[in-house]
Design a binder for these strands. Structure first.
Length: 327
DNA sequence: GCGAACTAACCCATTACTTCA
DNA sequence: TTTGAAGTAATGGGTTAGTTC
């Protein structure tokens, strides 16, 4: 897979709940957005809204774009991200929480209730597909095993937990969570509950999925960074090798041409008219002229950079060189 | 105002399980 | 059929910040 890392301002396009998503309509999604930086702790207010971070985000573009759902194409009509549905003017309808008796009874392991809050983000969701009592067939392409898992999920959850059951999320669930993650990498409690309800999962599962997803994102970012630093290191090593070689050559040149040794100057320039070399000392701020008649070498700048011919910077220096040479 | 206790949310390392070559 | 690697859901501990007393 080809990876491309781009740094830029991306988070502004992605808002939460109250603003539309500004994905280009006929263009591929902007890739894999990493914002905010996971190296930083967020304040609780930021956690609560999952937006409004003033820190410039880091965008990681993973190419080719992973085959996750696009808002225009996916998810299917029965799987709408609540905030997207609301923002994009989808056919959202008021959710009657009484449709989810099992959910209100269960309501997740975090002990929060979502049934009665008038401000709950749950209410305007389009909830066409499933309820907590496990009508797993509505996930469409879910296979038999997944259906069995979904049907047995509630009972498994209520067991004493002696054995750790690992439930595989269905493709639709994963895609839906992925799409949500693209919009915001953290969830507030209401969003978490809403997602859990829509996906027929426990809030804890949604929470864990987002945690693991953030961890995977960070891991990918680390790999990209590592690769980038590796290339930087290789480039610098090569550059260092080249400079060392150049330094050796210059030292050899100096030893074979002793007159260079007398020069405190770091810059040698040649007067194009008299063909004399002028040295511009940076330490003494004094210009001296060396007769170049017997020398066949080109004037060079004695530095650790690539040697190059130096023109006289201006006529004043050239006149000064003439003056010193003639005196 | 200050600090201890509590809580919630998160990150991180790790485990446990599933899938696939 | 077996097996090891990779992927990932889940767990537990630690940290941080907000709230309450």
């Amino acid at each position: 897979m080809e990876l491309a890392l781009s740094l830029g301002d991306t988070s502004k396009s992605f808002t939460f709940l109250d603003k539309a998503v500004t994905l280009p309509p006929n263009k591929d999604p902007p890739g894999f957005c990493l914002a905010p930086s996971f190296a930083e702790k967020r304040s609780d207010s930021e956690r609560g809204t999952a937006s409004g971070s003033s820190d410039p985000p880091v965008q990681l573009d993973l190419l080719p774009f992973s085959p996750v759902l696009r808002p225009q194409q996916h998810p299917p009509s029965h799987l709408r991200i609540p905030w997207l549905t609301q923002a994009c003017g989808g056919a959202a309808r008021v959710l009657d929480v009484n449709l989810f008796p099992a959910a209100t009874a269960e309501d997740g392991d975090d002990g929060t209730s979502l049934s009665s809050s008038p401000n709950s983000a749950v209410s305007p969701f389009q909830m066409d597909f499933c309820t907590r009592n496990g009508n797993a067939a509505e996930f469409g392409s879910r296979n038999k095993r997944e259906q069995q898992e979904a049907e047995g999920r509630a009972s498994d959850d209520d067991e004493n937990g002696s054995t750790r059951k690992k439930l595989r999320l269905s493709k639709e669930q994963s895609a839906f969570l992925e799409e949500s993650f693209k919009e915001h990498t953290t969830l507030n409690p209401k969003q978490k509950l809403a997602l859990a309800k829509q996906l027929n999962l426990r809030p804890r599962q949604v929470e864990v999925w987002f945690q693991n997803r953030r961890a995977r994102t960070k891991l990918k970012q680390t790999e990209v960074d590592c690769e980038y630093l590796k290339r930087c290191c290789e480039t610098l090593t090569e550059e260092n090798r080249r400079l060392q070689k150049e330094l050796q050559e210059l030292r050899a040149l100096k030893s074979s041409q002793p007159f260079y040794m007398q020069l405190p100057a770091t810059t040698l320039t040649m007067c194009p008219s008299c063909e004399r070399v002028a040295t511009n000392s940076t330490t003494t701020n004094q210009t001296s002229i060396v007769n170049n008649n017997a020398s066949s070498q080109i004037p060079v700048e004695l530095s650790l950079s690539k040697p190059r011919i130096l023109p006289f910077p201006n006529g004043q220096v050239q006149a000064q060189a003439h003056q010193i040479a003639s005196s």
